[in-house]
Computed example of a mutant assay.
Amino acid sequence: MRAAVHLAIPVNDLDTARSFYGDVLGLEQGRSSDHWIDWDLGGHQLVTHVVPRPTEQAGTSEVDGHRVPIPHFGLLLSPDNFHALADRLRTVGTEFLIEPYLRFPDQPGAQWTMFFLDSSGNALEFKAFLDESQVFAR
């Protein structure tokens, strides 16, 4: 079996999480119960667990002139899939914390990035490198 990430996050409501992660982000749902759902996040396991409390950010970090929310998680996409997701998010009225834009143009690691919150206030970042071989470039 290849290495994959397992990430568990708190959500306020499973029906709202199901709508956001399934319908808005288009993730495939796996196993579930009355208090959690497994999602296929690009071959990685994301588990949304009901925790009846607000999600809070620890703070922000300055990156490329933007205040990046901490903590956050997301996925590396192809540029085509990144732009398709950005268009889908705009269509459903998603409010971006950081609008989709090209970060570090003409530098190693140039990438499209966007930040937004899920239905429970968890910060998400989706990005696409112009050259996938540059993911860890300095």
Rank of each mutant, 00 (worst) to 15 (best):
H49S: 09
L117Y: 11
Q107D: 13
V63S: 12
Q111N: 12
H44A: 05
H44K: 09
V47W: 07
F126E: 00
H49N: 04
Q45Y: 04
P79E: 00
Q134V: 00
L77S: 05
L77F: 01
V47F: 01
V135G: 07
P54I: 00
V50K: 06
F126H: 08
T94S: 04
V51F: 13
R103A: 09
L102H: 08
H72T: 05
A86W: 02
T55R: 01
L130P: 00
N122E: 08
L97F: 04
V50T: 13
A128V: 00
V47L: 15
S119C: 08
V135E: 03
N81C: 03
F73Y: 15
L41Y: 12
Y101V: 07
P71A: 11
R103E: 07
D80E: 08
F82W: 10
S78H: 06
P100M: 14
R67N: 07
D131N: 14
E62Q: 10
G42M: 08
Q111W: 07
A84T: 11
T48I: 03
G59K: 06
V135H: 15
L102Y: 11
H72L: 03
T94R: 02
G43Y: 03
V135C: 08
G74H: 00
F116S: 11
I70E: 11
V51S: 03
D131F: 10
L85T: 00
F116Q: 10
D131R: 03
P69V: 03
E125Q: 07
M114V: 00
L85R: 05
G121T: 07
F115G: 01
G121H: 10
H66V: 13
G59F: 09
T94A: 01
E125P: 10
E62C: 06
L85D: 01
H49C: 10
P100S: 06
T60D: 11
I70H: 08
E125H: 01
Q134S: 09
D87K: 12
H72V: 04
L97V: 10
A123W: 06
H66C: 13
L75T: 01
N122Q: 07
F115H: 13
N81L: 04
A110Y: 00
V63D: 09
D87V: 02
W112Y: 15
G121M: 10
L130V: 01
L85F: 00
Y101H: 13
F129M: 08
Q45C: 08
H49M: 14
E62A: 14
F96C: 14
P100D: 11
R90G: 12
S78K: 01
L77C: 03
A86P: 05
E95A: 13
F116C: 09
